[in-house]
Nucleic acid binder design. Structure first.
Lengths: 200, 200
DNA sequence: CTTAAATTATACCGCTAGGTACAATTTAAC
DNA sequence: GTTAAATTGTACCTAGCGGTATAATTTAAG
């Protein structure tokens, strides 16, 4: 018989702002003041909408995966494009995102995963970060293992190693992107490293 | 006409302990309690011996460079070994260090450099981290540019790109090592990526 | 117009951060 | 053995942390 004041902020917009803070500062380095300021709300609003810092982080991480990672994954399975081009398109698209001047440079996940050894990340946050790492690794292995063209070329024989190589390259470009290296330099590097893996 | 109590700890030993904490937690994540506990001293002793957290960090960083990085650099210039083997030895040696189970996994410098965008690293600490980054990059470029064998093979024509590729690979292995990937997996990846760069 | 539910702002909690004052202790020169 | 310099341990400072109690505000149903 009554139904209170309306929320004066958009939850999704606020979540994206939080995502950018974690992207820039990592889990430990992002303070509630940093977060709520950039979200444009105060602490009680944040706590009522998201729970606590860890819960906010988990949602922000999922937001990053959905909006900043998933689109590139689609390129891996695009119909009518040969395997090598699909893989290259995928990697180039990721690097382009990592270097985009309109957002934080580098990779949100790579940064926060590097904090895992610190013992300062709460349990559930650890889990989502580790899960994202394992799933990415497995995705590449499975790609080399299952893709019809990959099997044709024989890349499935070293599926796990091939997958890890791709992942290693992308972790490298993420790190370089954070340091401010130009996209073009990284694209060139990727192009040639793929040759060594047998993708050319 | 008097000369006080003797220091009850070894400064170098304490510095190495501090190095390990920064290696594990980064600059922001390493608290004075973490640091002094692992150094086995209390705060006033630390402040009198090293100045403050930033000064301790700068010395710890230099300690890392001297003891954990420099040895691998020597392998790049070893006499009586061909260029490609020198480069490979260098990279394998670094990866072996990054994966060593007896110490923190991954790279101290890569971790702390990833904190640079956070705006939470004091001025001088920023400078030493950026300088280490630039110098590493330049070292590889110069290697490809100046090494007699590199010139012979024609690798000097893409010296900058080649150097950046090497650096990118090593940033990638550093990140993977921190996640706990086996050394053998990374060695295999390096071996094949080098092929793409023309080092085989 | 009242009322109850929801969101807001303010002010605060206990705790830990980086850093320090000070007194107690140890040392070697005299 | 005294004395002055250096290091140690304890106890504390202010500021900021993650988190919350409370009261003021806004809202729509009755």
């Amino acid at each position: 018989m009554a139904s209170g004041r309306k929320k004066q902020f958009d939850e999704q917009t606020a979540l994206e702002a939080a995502m950018n803070v974690f992207w820039q500062k990592g889990y430990v380095g992002a303070s509630l003041t940093d977060l709520t300021q950039r979200m444009g709300i105060n602490k009680p609003s944040m706590y009522s909408a998201f729970g606590n810092k860890e819960a906010l982080f988990i949602k922000a991480t999922q937001c990053y995966i959905d909006t900043k990672v998933a689109p590139h994954v689609d390129l891996l399975f695009q119909e009518g494009v040969i395997f090598k081009e699909r893989l290259k398109n995928h990697m180039m698209s990721i690097v382009s995102m990592q270097c985009n001047a309109d957002q934080v440079k580098g990779c949100y996940l790579a940064l926060c995963q590097s904090e895992l050894l610190s013992d300062d990340i709460p349990e559930q946050a650890q889990q989502i970060l580790k899960k994202a790492d394992v799933m990415t690794s497995e995705m590449y292995t499975k790609l080399f293992n299952s893709d019809a063209e990959s099997i044709e070329i024989g890349l499935n024989k070293n599926a796990k190693a091939n997958g890890l190589s791709i992942y290693t390259i992308l972790k490298g470009t993420a790190s370089m992107a954070r340091s401010g290296i130009d996209k073009s330099e990284l694209e060139y590097s990727i192009d040639r490293m793929l040759i060594g893996i047998g993708v050319h």
